[in-house]
Amino acid sequence: MELTFLGTGAGMPAKHRNVTSIALKHLYDGSVWLFDCGEATQHQILHTSIKPRKINKIFITHLHGDHIFGLPGLLGSRSFLEGTEPLHVFGPAGIRDFIETSLKVSETHLKYDLEIHEIEEGIIYEDDRLYICAKKLDHVVMSFGYRVVEKDKPGSLLVEKLKRDGIMPGPIYKQLKNGETVQLEDGRKISGRDYLGPNKKGRIVTILGDTRICESSISLAKDADLLIHEATFDKNSAEIANQYYHSTTVQAAEVAKRAGVKKLYITHISSRYEKKDWPELEKEAKEIFPNTEIAHDFKVVRI
């Protein structure tokens, strides 16, 4: 997987940070999942290698404008750019009204099937490779966090062990790799499970919407390879963060530490902080959770 921060600011666009949007690209097929779609997200995409027609799922954390105002334009542009595959949008109650009203009033006609899913807590999507779980956070409006879990993969086929047991390469190896039980020419029955190494653990990526520090954040981030957590304010602004249902740099780091994540990226940075302030914000979080980086627009992370 590959993650691109398309917007890392809070509230409204700023000179160096656009409002929130994150793209998660699946390298096995090139498909892209978008998390939030703030104003001018499609402009940000123009500076990347992301193709709008490859976006097949959009997950909205909550319905504040800095997370959804870019959505109608992107949906229309995807159609103009020969996007014909179905697109699924997931989000809180109200996302359907927002999208359908925007498209109707602007007379935007899509060339692809658009499926809108108003979600509740739990597993909201699953396929043979991964699943995604949503939980409610602590924000002034309904806000969700998303936990993307890649399913464990079977271990490598133990070729040398097979050869030692007199089982030479051939079509049978594929059956054993799939864990099947097969009968050999000499009458022996063997199970592929006996010739596989340990399972390869899938990766976990947690992307949270706007929130105060809460238990749901920690649960969603448990043992994640990567946590993306808002840090709208610095450590000295805990009172105002609480008042506006947001988090500080230190609070984001505390979630990462308590959840046992491997890496933390802080984002959704208030425009009150100039570029010269960013290293200090990162330092504040690192004092609690050393493996922290402050995100910036167009940063690409290979997972």
Rank of each mutant, 00 (worst) to 15 (best):
E2N: 12
T8M: 05
A10R: 06
H16M: 11
R17S: 04
R17V: 04
R17L: 11
G30M: 09
L34T: 00
C37Q: 05
C37A: 15
E39R: 13
H43F: 11
P52G: 06
K54D: 15
N56R: 13
D66Q: 10
L71Q: 02
L87I: 09
V89N: 02
F90N: 02
F90Q: 01
G91E: 02
G91N: 04
I95D: 02
I95M: 08
T101G: 08
S106E: 12
H109C: 08
H109I: 10
L110C: 08
K111H: 15
L114E: 05
L114M: 10
E115W: 07
H117R: 11
H117V: 08
E118P: 06
E118D: 11
I119F: 07
E121P: 04
G122P: 05
I124Q: 05
E126D: 12
R129G: 10
A134Y: 02
L137I: 05
D138S: 14
V140E: 14
V141F: 11
F144G: 00
G145Q: 01
G145F: 00
G145D: 01
V149H: 09
K151E: 06
P154F: 08
G155C: 08
L158Q: 14
V159H: 11
G166T: 06
I167K: 04
Y173A: 06
Y173E: 06
Y173F: 15
K174T: 12
Q175G: 07
Q175P: 03
G179H: 10
T181L: 06
S191I: 08
G192F: 03
P198I: 08
K200C: 07
G202F: 01
R203Y: 08
V205G: 01
V205C: 03
T206N: 01
T206R: 01
I207T: 02
I207E: 00
I207K: 02
G209H: 02
S216P: 03
S217C: 13
S219A: 15
L227E: 00
L227M: 07
I228F: 01
K235Q: 14
N236H: 12
A238Q: 13
A238I: 12
E239R: 13
Y245S: 14
T248M: 04
T248I: 07
T249H: 03
V250C: 07
A259F: 01
K263I: 05
L264H: 03
Y265P: 01
I266Y: 00
I269W: 00
R272M: 14
P279I: 08
E282Y: 06
K286I: 02
F289G: 01
T292P: 03
H296M: 10
F298S: 06
K299A: 09
I303A: 03
